[in-house]
Design a protein around this nucleic acid. Structure first.
Lengths: 343, 343
DNA sequence: CAGCGATTTGGGAACGCTCCCATCCAACCT
DNA sequence: AGGTTGGATGGGAGCGTTCCCAAATCGCTG
């Protein structure tokens, strides 16, 4: 009885078998599986019972073959090697992402793509229908990939505002500007009047926005000394920027660094220069990363809702998958100043 | 001509079209695509040219349907919520992984699976042939998932030695014991004689192995004071463990912490107690994480080759995919002591 | 009770590929 | 020269779905 035919190794039940078990046709069984409404309650129940009894699960390959969909979305991490910047985010964003995805039948595919060759591969994946949509977490804002994918007709969603935003690609980002503004204003309210900032690279939106937030906070304020030094989000750059600032204005009493590693670097430079934090100089970072919870003194930092960003990213893509013509506005999530010891 | 039939929207070329273009049969074209040797040089060239000309790429769904393989492997991150421990590793391991995978036709699927329901989903994925194999990066060593997957007949590979190792599941791990031993021996060689350790949780192999490394290093050494305090890999636990150790032996002159966050916590406690690092007390951490490069003083730490671990992990799985009966020994990768300022 | 629209159902025809078997042909052996 | 061998090739038969159209059934209405 069991296992007549030339059954393959995998004794996985097919829709046909479900249909036989339920005494209906393959077509009807398919309708039940796909939640079509045109099925009599009687047949519905019979098929459902059969499915349960046999432990039927649709064969994704067969389904994809005919529907021309893959029910898979791709997350591309387009990082230029070991940019430390990506790290703190990554795990958390992925977590949010997969949380959101888990309530859908969508699978998550992951690809690291730094080289141009890998970028090509991503495009190929899209063109060949291996994935239905692409999410991109990219570090350089001028990446041409999103535009290319869009041109290839695939839904795309981004983490981080693209520097050259054509407005075509929906993205989710933290409200970098207002986060930076809040941090700077906080310093001002604490009575600090010589407030410096260490910026990120100017080819990244996050760096630019945080700088404008700093500027906006101090705009129109009288009696405030402003100082700007450039960094690249890395710790070493923060340390040397801090030394530079200290040389320029030995009496500065506050620093807003556009990233936590830079803030940590600043902390070191201040310590080496004999300044006490926060007594002499207050320091605020950005990201509220693991790092902020481990420096000495603990770092006051602007927190981004990375997990929520991940969820939103998935949401943005899913919406487009459902309605390919949906025009989506960017999603800007609020940041929060987390007070610790350094300011 | 072009696009007779009821051609679908996606004008993707099929193998049939390649065959026509190359003036051979579908069968021959397939043989070329799959690298079969039984093809005449002439046909080989014709088909290759046609493939290039048409931009043909095999349809994975169709292929899977008949081969019953998915050419997809799954990475399951089985973490209990926000265990910070996972973070430093994650990105780096994934990078190594996908590097190794990029030279194969294998796709990488990612799933976060903390809850039991999600674990079930993983098993289903395997049973239904959606993935050909599973890699697991798990934080609790007593996870039953690997055994279950193995029972379901799927190749499995792990990062981190499972606590209850049946010997059945191949894994890759850093050489925790000898890393800890090297760190401890280094402290000893520096003339330290009151050497404490802050351990990890005892339900994790990494924690246990690092403790035995510490013990091994000091075994038989005379005139050395040993002190052990328990932590959980987290920064807070490191800080309080350090206080406890200081209370027990105010004169201790070195600490080996089984994780960087704990070392950072220890640094704080030492600083609060007025001890200078490394002058009064030397501190060594484990992981050589981002954190170690940002503390003050910079943390001397035991580095794990996380990226290589990722590559090896993939390799372990691929080997099994090629030869299902391959019996694989665990892969233990060497660690390295990275000297910075704290010791 | 015939007639008719609406609802539900059945099953053929792809989807694009691999597998396998039959066929073909050239080279080689006796 | 006939027979044999073996490599190269062609193409049919699925793989398990979904889609769609035709057929069956049902419930009313006139």
């Amino acid at each position: 009885m069991a296992g007549k035919g030339r059954s393959r190794a995998s004794g996985r039940p097919t829709l046909e078998q479900v249909a036989v078990e339920a005494n209906v046709s393959r077509g009807t069984a398919s309708r039940v599986v796909n939640g079509s409404l045109e099925v009599s309650p009687y047949a519905l129940k019979a098929v459902r019972d059969a499915i349960r009894k046999l432990g039927y699960v649709p064969n994704q390959a067969a389904r994809s073959l005919v529907t021309q969909r893959s029910d898979t979305v791709l997350l591309v991490v387009s990082e230029s090697e070991d940019r430390v910047f990506g790290e703190p985010f990554f795990a958390s964003i992925v977590r949010g992402l997969s949380q959101e995805l888990s309530s859908t039948p969508l699978q998550l595919n992951l690809m690291m793509a730094s080289t141009a060759r890998q970028h090509d591969r991503v495009e190929q994946l899209v063109r060949n229908g291996h994935v239905d949509g692409v999410m991109l977490i990219s570090l350089h804002g001028d990446d041409p990939l999103p535009q290319n994918l869009l041109a290839a007709g695939a839904p795309v969603a981004l983490i981080g505002r693209p520097v050259a935003d054509g407005g075509a690609v929906p993205y989710v980002d933290a409200d970098n500007e207002s986060g930076a503004r809040a941090a700077t204003e906080y310093l001002y309210q604490q009575g600090r009047r010589r407030i410096a900032t260490i910026t990120g690279p100017r080819d990244m939106a996050a760096g630019l926005d945080r700088l404008s937030g700093y500027r906006a906070a101090l705009r129109g304020k009288r009696g405030v000394t402003r100082l700007v030094a450039r960094g690249d989000f890395g710790q070493a750059s923060g340390e040397s920027a801090m030394r530079e600032l200290l040389a320029k204005d030995p009496k500065l009493d506050a620093v807003f660094a556009a990233s936590d590693p830079m803030a940590a670097g600043a902390l070191r430079a201040l310590w080496a220069a004999g300044r006490r934090v926060p007594d002499d100089v207050a320091v605020i970072g950005f990201d509220d990363s693991e790092l902020a919870r481990n420096t000495n003194p603990l770092l006051t930092s602007v927190s981004q809702p990375t997990q929520r960003m991940g969820r939103k990213l998935a949401e943005l893509l899913i919406t487009q998958l459902r309605d390919p013509d949906a025009k989506l506005a960017p999603v800007i999530l609020p940041t929060e100043l987390v007070r610790r010891e350094s300011a």
